[in-house]
């Protein structure tokens, strides 16, 4: 098996390392436009990786493609994967690009390949948590997603811009457009992140979750932000983003009916977002290669058949999921 990883950033380099360490692939092609990143990756990953620097050779020789390149480059990468009939796994988090990629569903179905969209930390892990949470209920009415933190610089840029764009929430059969940075909600993430103010933002989770569960009445998403984040959201990033962000967290909240009672389920996880995203992408890639992602066309991780198995694989890689429990909890 040979896999091509597009992007050798904070997520891509880790995905490459995990796939090789787990012996999921025999050989790996790693592409990036930055010679520095490729040199660093080549030193740390080993000799089973083939490095390709820009300008890339036209032919990509691989059984599957993992897209961890920055926002704005992923749509073209997916189109190329579909045209060459290669399954693809994407760690995308930009709302507009995710929508554009989902619109390629027909082309992917015609090509007979699975394309896993939004296989990162959020969306990605959040979708798996929702898929698992759905099994606890007889009927789910609402899904609410919260995320905190960013991975590498490309992720930080998407995070920064998301607060100044419109958010799209699904409510009673229609998309509700609201300004990013509005709708403050104090939200408790698992430790060590703890309580954070979360706001609406242009996040891709509701789109992917509605794609998976079109019958849910209400799907919203919010992300943690500081006053400085909100104040500077409409400006260009004033300082270069960190090579990698610190601790991040996700939290999903499902409300619905179980038996005759209305219940709320809150699941969450903490991890550095790039580390968490890499684990999710690596497992999704392994599942695509082994045929565990059986569908054809575009799908998010909320559509995996075995979310418990996926969470078990994540736990083996150190990403543990937590559940919030308590008396008199107002969520």
């Amino acid at each position: 098996m040979r896999v091509a990883v597009l992007g050798a950033g904070a997520v891509g380099a880790r995905v490459a390392r995990q796939l090789l360490v787990a012996d999921s692939v025999d050989q790996l092609v790693l592409r990036d436009t930055s010679a520095e990143r490729l040199a660093w990756a080549a030193r740390t990953i080993g000799d089973r990786v083939i490095i390709e620097h820009h300008p890339f050779p036209t032919a990509l020789d691989a059984d599957a493609v993992v897209v961890t390149s920055p926002r704005g480059t992923q749509l073209a990468a997916v189109k190329e994967a579909i045209s060459t009939g290669r399954p693809a796994v994407l760690a995308c988090d930009g709302l507009a690009e995710t929508i554009a990629i989902l619109k390629l569903d027909r082309a992917a179905r015609d090509a007979g390949i699975p394309v896993v969209v939004g296989a990162g930390f959020a969306p990605g892990l959040t979708c798996v948590l929702v898929a698992h949470g759905m099994s606890w209920f007889d009927e789910v009415d609402e899904i609410h997603i919260y995320k905190m933190g960013a991975g590498g610089p490309a992720c930080a840029l998407v995070h920064h811009r998301a607060l100044s764009r419109f958010s799209y929430d699904w409510r009673d059969g229609d998309w509700i457009r609201r300004p990013g940075g509005s709708g403050r909600e104090l939200c408790w993430f698992p430790e060590p992140v703890g309580p954070r103010d979360c706001y609406r933002a242009a996040l891709a989770d509701p789109v992917l979750l509605h794609h998976a569960f079109p019958g849910i009445d209400r799907i919203t998403s919010r992300m943690a932000a500081t006053r400085r984040d909100r104040l500077t959201a409409t400006m260009p990033m004033l300082a270069p983003a960190h090579a990698e962000g610190g601790s991040g967290a996700v939290r999903v909240e499902l409300r619905g009916r179980r038996g005759t009672t209305q219940e709320t389920l809150v699941l969450g996880a903490t991890e550095r977002p790039a580390v968490g995203a890499a684990a999710v992408v690596a497992i999704a890639t392994e599942w695509v290669l082994s045929g565990k992602v059986a569908g054809r066309g575009m799908s998010g991780l909320a559509e995996v058949d075995d979310p418990v198995g996926f969470l078990g694989e994540l736990a083996k890689r150190g990403l543990v999921v937590e559940i919030f429990e308590g008396d008199g909890v107002v969520v």
Binding site: H132, G268, L311, V320, E322, F324, E325, G326, G328
Partner: peptide
């Protein structure tokens, strides 16, 4: 309020 986070274990999965 009272409560807290705990790791998902066997019965939860």
């Amino acid at each position: 309020q009272s409560g807290g986070w705990r790791k998902l274990n066997g019965p939860d999965l």
